[in-house]
């Protein structure tokens, strides 16, 4: 049977039929590894992140990588054209991906991308927002909660100042941006369930 991994971090949504599930999984792992490494590099450049304990750095990255990638690659979801571009550079219509059996999660990803795009964030705002997403003190397994909370607070403060400065007339913009965080958390959970079901299958 055909195995479909319609994640834009994959090279192609449909796996080669002659490959075993293990080989498909390994190919997928190879295709998203560079993006994960970039998230780690990004984290290292967040002031204060490297001062956290190594275990807390790993915990935050493990829990938040999907959310960071979702923000970073939101532009792969073309809302107007209803297409998704995979890292191979090939573009697929949402309809075609749905035809392969992908549905709910992709719809939610499109919705998120559209909402994020509507905020028209600058590159600087997007970077700082991504840092706030990554340094979330409520991830399970944090050892030194106080350090992570302090870093998160300082990042949120900096984001608030930046957003207010770039658009002083729109006080709700910062709130709208912070409200994207629970959306990302929901997407992360649904995505995890999807991965889990693939592994069980």
């Amino acid at each position: 049977k055909d195995i479909v991994l319609a994640c834009p971090m994959n090279m192609y949504p449909q796996a080669e039929p002659n490959k075993t599930p293990q080989e498909i999984w390994e190919d997928f792992s190879l295709s998203f590894t560079p993006a994960v490494r970039e998230v780690v590099e990004f984290a290292k450049h967040i002031p204060g992140f490297s001062a956290l304990s190594e275990n807390d750095q790993v915990t935050l990255l493990k829990a938040g990588t999907f959310e960071v990638l979702m923000v970073r690659f939101a532009s792969l979801f073309n809302v107007k054209e209803q297409t998704v571009t995979f890292i191979s550079g090939t573009t697929y219509s949402l309809e075609a991906l749905k035809g392969m059996g992908m549905g709910g999660l992709l719809d939610t990803m499109f919705e998120f991308s559209e909402k994020l795009k509507s905020l028209e964030l600058t590159a600087e705002e997007l970077g700082l927002f991504t840092a706030v997403v990554l340094v979330s003190a409520d991830r399970s397994g944090i050892e030194n909660l106080n350090s992570v909370e302090l870093l998160q607070e300082s990042l949120i403060k900096a984001l608030r100042a930046l957003v207010s400065k770039s658009n002083p007339c729109d006080a709700s913009r910062f709130t709208k941006l912070l409200l994207k965080m629970p959306d990302l958390r929901t997407l992360n959970n649904v995505h995890s369930e999807k991965l889990l079901s693939f592994r069980i299958d």
């Binding site: 792992s29 998203f32 490494r37 780690v40 490297s50 493990k62 990588t65």
Partner: peptide, 27 residues
């Protein structure tokens, strides 16, 4: 299979990428 992130090998990739930084750090 209770932890999708571990199943993806994510922790291994993350730890190696973080350690890369430590290796590059000057003595």
């Amino acid at each position: 299979f209770s932890d999708p992130a571990s199943n993806l090998g994510l922790e291994d990739i993350i730890r190696k990428a973080l350690m890369g930084n430590l290796e590059e750090r000057p003595e």
